[in-house]
C-alpha cells in the first residue's frame, strides 16, 4: 500500500484498506449510506441558515448549492460546481450528511468535492454538462455518487459506472411533478416487466435498453434496482412527495420547492411528515394545511424543448 493510500484511507482509487483491517470505499459502504437516507427527504439549500432550517424540519440530508435549479433556469449561463467554501460552511453548520453537485463528466469537480470530505456527489444534469460522451468513472472514487435517470437502461448504465444511488431526473426547477412521475413510472414499471421475462428475453432486453446483462439479471432477481431509488425534479408539495412514495421510490429530493415557497420551514416539515406517513392519508391531509404559497411553477408541457434539462446525460 502506498503512503498516499495510508494517509488518505482510500487514496485515489476508491476502495482501500486502513489500519486495523478496516476496509473503506466499498460498494457496500457507498450504497449503505443511501440506505440510511431511505424514507427521508433531501433538501436543496444555498446558505448555512437554510441548511439549519432543513435539519430542524427533519431533512435526512441536504444538497449544498450556490443556486437552486429554479434560479439556474432563470439566470441562464453556465452552471458549475458550487464554491467549496460555501459547501464547507454548510457542512460545518449541520450534523446530517451533505451532498453537492458536479457537472456530468467533470471528474475534476468530483475530486474537489471528494477532497473537501463531501458525503455524496450528485453528478447532475442540473449543471451544464462538461462532457457530452462520458460520465465520471464513479468506481474510482471513495465517495459515493447519486445520478439521475429517466428509465431503467439509463439507471443501470449509471450503476455500471459506479453510481451508488439513483434518482429520477424529473424536470428540476419547475415545480411540475409530471416528469418525475414519468421517470419513476418508467424505471419501476420496466422492472416489473423484467421480472416476468425468461432469461433468453433478458439478453435481448439488455441489448435493447443498452444496459449490462449482469445488472439486468440482478435487477430481475431482486425485483428492484440494486441501489436505492429516490424521486427528484419538480416535487413541491406534501402531496407530490406522497404520490412519489406510492409509486415505489425510497425517498424524496426537494430542490427549489422549499426555499422558493412562501413559508419554507413549514413546507419542509410538512414534506418530511408526508414522506414518512405516505400511507396515512389523514396525516398527509393534515400536514398539507396552511403552508402558504407553493413555489411558482413552470408547466413542463408548454416549455420549449431547448429549456428542458432532463435530456442531458445519456
Amino acid at each position: 500500500m502506498s503512503n498516499m493510500q495510508k494517509q488518505n484511507g482510500a487514496g485515489f482509487n476508491g476502495q482501500g484498506e486502513k489500519a486495523h483491517g478496516r476496509r473503506v470505499g466499498t460498494d457496500e459502504l457507498k450504497r449503505g449510506l443511501a440506505q440510511m437516507l431511505k424514507g427521508g427527504v433531501i433538501m436543496d439549500v444555498v446558505t448555512p441558515d437554510q441548511a439549519a432550517i432543513a435539519e430542524e424540519a427533519g431533512a435526512c440530508a441536504v444538497m449544498a448549492l450556490e443556486r437552486v435549479p429554479a434560479d439556474i433556469r432563470a439566470q441562464g449561463g453556465v452552471a458549475r460546481m458550487s464554491d467549496p467554501a460555501l459547501i464547507l460552511s454548510i457542512m460545518e453548520r449541520v450534523t446530517i450528511p451533505v451532498m453537492a453537485k458536479c457537472r456530468i463528466g467533470h471528474f475534476a469537480e468530483a475530486r474537489i468535492l471528494e477532497a473537501i470530505g463531501i458525503d455524496y456527489i450528485d453528478e447532475s444534469e442540473v449543471l451544464t454538462p462538461a462532457d457530452e460522451a462520458h460520465h465520471v468513472d464513479k468506481r474510482d472514487f471513495a465517495v459515493p455518487f447519486v445520478c439521475g435517470a429517466r428509465n431503467l437502461g439509463e439507471a443501470l448504465r449509471r450503476i455500471s459506472e459506479g453510481a451508488a444511488m439513483i434518482r429520477s431526473k424529473g424536470e428540476a426547477g419547475t415545480g411540475d411533478v409530471v416528469e418525475a412521475v414519468r421517470h419513476a413510472r418508467a424505471i419501476i414499471g420496466e422492472i416489473r416487466r423484467l421480472k416476468t421475462m425468461r432469461r433468453d428475453e433478458m439478453f435481448a432486453y439488455a441489448k435493447e435498453i443498452q444496459a449490462p446483462f449482469q445488472l439486468v439479471e440482478e435487477t430481475a432477481d431482486l425485483g428492484r434496482l440494486p441501489v436505492v431509488l429516490f424521486a427528484a425534479g419538480g416535487i413541491a408539495t406534501p402531496a407530490d412527495a406522497a404520490l412519489m412514495m406510492h409509486l415505489g421510490v425510497d425517498g424524496i429530493f426537494v430542490g427549489s420547492g422549499i426555499f422558493k415557497s412562501g413559508d419554507p420551514a413549514a413546507r419542509a416539515r410538512a414534506i418530511v411528515e408526508a414522506t414518512t406517513h405516505f400511507n396515512d392519508w389523514k396525516i398527509v391531509a393534515e400536514v398539507s394545511k396552511n403552508l402558504g404559497e407553493p413555489m411558482v411553477g413552470i408547466n413542463v408541457s408548454v416549455m420549449p424543448e431547448r429549456d428542458r434539462i432532463a435530456g442531458r446525460g445519456w
Binding site: G9, V24, L33, M91, D119, V143
Partner: peptide, 15 residues
C-alpha cells in the same frame, strides 16, 4: 459521540 469517525469517506467495514 455522533459521526465519531468523520464523514462518509471515513466509513469502514471490519471484523
Amino acid at each position: 459521540k455522533r459521526n465519531a469517525f468523520g464523514r462518509q469517506i471515513d466509513s469502514f467495514i471490519c471484523d
